[in-house]
């Protein structure tokens, strides 16, 4: 099996960068949330150039921040599991039971992220936020695809285990 080392190493690097960026993102959003509670007028001026930002607008922004924070552990799970899978490809044996479980975990985190995306849409609908949110089926299709692939992976691994020891 030929594995393209450049693609693998680029993917690993990208995943590591994203995992690292997840932490400052979380700190930034958490900081913003605290500022929105402690200094809402200053934040209203800084973000929407209006000191008298409507309280409902600020509430909506806080909810979006909380949704962003909820996405941090999901993104961490998603990225670390994907990195572990890429590492197993690099090590030469990706068809292991652990990877089937990782793929299923990725599917669940993707489902969670889609749920958060819906929550963001609900906040956009209920509060006067201009976040350019629109519904999309792409993410939901990706969730279905991931669950199906996880199952396919699991069956493939069992079939291989059956073949082990066949003469």
């Amino acid at each position: 099996m030929s594995v393209r080392p450049n693609l693998l190493s680029t993917t690993r690097l990208a995943l590591r960068v994203l995992i690292a960026l997840n932490i400052p993102f979380a700190i930034g959003v958490a900081g913003l949330f605290v500022v929105s509670l402690e200094a809402p007028i200053w934040l209203g001026k800084a973000l929407v150039a209006r000191a008298d930002a409507a309280p409902s607008l600020m509430t909506g922004m806080r909810l979006v921040m909380l949704i962003g924070l909820a996405g941090v552990p999901l993104a961490y799970l998603f990225l670390t599991r994907l990195l572990a899978m890429v590492d197993s490809v690099r090590d030469g044996d990706p068809f292991i039971a652990e990877n089937a479980r990782r793929l299923q975990m990725i599917a669940w985190t993707m489902l969670g992220i889609q749920g958060l995306n819906l929550a963001e849409g609900a906040v956009c609908a209920l509060f006067p936020l201009d976040l350019d949110w629109s519904p999309s089926v792409d993410g939901w299709l990706a969730v279905l695809l991931l669950f199906v692939l996880a199952r396919v992976f699991d069956i493939g691994i069992r079939m291989r285990a059956d073949l082990d020891g066949t003469v």
Binding site: D162, L163, D164, G165, T166, V167
Partner: peptide, 8 residues
């Protein structure tokens, strides 16, 4: 040695 799990 009887260690095979299956035979084709």
């Amino acid at each position: 040695t009887g260690k095979a799990r299956a035979i084709r």
